[in-house]
């Protein structure tokens, strides 16, 4: 009865609020948990999107990136960084959660050429998983570099390898995998694998480089890691940003950032930005 005197509403719907039920919530690393939920995942359409979780007693929702989804299942891997995520980590299976889903743009899979390189740093590792799975399903030759501070923080190495990705783990202190940052891993792989050379030239991806083993970069992690990657990257790529958010769906301008093409809301126009539009 409020439908506005017969004029149709021209609005593209992308987000959805619904109730999910926790199926499993287990520790993967000292402060990292994996939560599997069941609910309406219909609006979750791209790797790199996030959900915003309402928590009892907390005023703001908690934005968490989607690690994986399949039909009505949703996997979230989150790091305990404060009271809200602590509360999340203590929730038992069967608990119901109010989620806003379908938030953020997610990664664009169409630009990556044949040999995408996925780089996840710490809490930035989870969104790489669904992305990796999708890219492998598209027949891509995927390399994954996962960066952690130390051995006990490492998670999901076997899961990425099981998808069929070449998986390299870097630890800053050298206590597991290779010693160094993710960019050290990039440099080492360039030496070991030689250049993609001819293969990359043949790929139809714009911005791919003939000089290295990868045709495109997808990454999620902290800003210092992004800056380091940008210093050594030989191709174009997509970077997923984190910011303190108010609403998470584009209303409050709490998480805006400046880009080459003007301001963008990390929650709505991001969190994924292209390398060329980022103000480094």
């Amino acid at each position: 009865m409020f439908a506005g005197r017969g004029r149709p509403l021209k609005i593209q719907k992308s987000m959805k609020q619904s109730i999910f039920t926790i199926l499993e919530n287990k520790r993967l690393a000292p402060s990292v948990f994996r939560m599997e939920l069941v609910g309406d995942t219909s609006q979750i359409t791209a790797p790199g999107q996030f959900v915003n979780i309402r928590l009892e007693g907390r005023f703001l929702r908690r934005p968490i990136s989607v690690c994986d989804k399949a039909e009505d299942r949703l996997v979230l891997i989150y790091k305990v960084v404060g009271h809200g995520t602590q509360q999340l980590s203590e929730m038992a299976p069967g608990t119901q959660l109010d989620l806003l889903t379908g938030l953020g743009n997610g990664y664009d899979l169409s630009k990556c050429g044949e040999k995408p390189l996925l780089i996840g740093g710490g809490a930035g590792v989870p969104p790489m998983y669904w992305l990796c799975r999708e890219l492998i399903a598209l027949g891509k030759e995927v390399t994954v570099i996962l960066g952690f501070n130390t051995a006990e923080e490492v998670f999901y190495e076997a899961e990425f390898a099981a998808l069929g990705a070449r998986t390299i783990v870097m630890t800053a202190d050298g206590s597991y995998g290779r010693k160094g940052f993710v960019t050290d891993g990039m440099t080492a792989l360039e030496k070991e694998c030689g250049f993609a050379g001819k293969d990359a030239q043949q790929s139809d991806c714009a911005g791919s480089s003939a000089d290295t083993f990868y045709s495109y970069i997808y990454t999620c992690g902290p800003m210092p890691m992004f800056r380091a990657i940008n210093q050594v990257a030989r191709t174009s790529g997509q970077f997923s940003f984190e910011e303190r958010m108010g609403c998470g769906f584009g209303a409050c301008m709490g998480c805006s950032c400046k880009t080459i093409t003007g301001y963008k809301r990390i929650c709505k126009d991001g969190p994924v930005l292209e390398r060329e539009e980022i103000l480094w």
Partner: peptide, 17 residues
Amino acid sequence: FGNPTPRIAECTAGMIN
């Protein structure tokens, strides 16, 4: 453009913007 980020802080029963 407005102010630099972070622009948001949570509080008990409220928020700062």
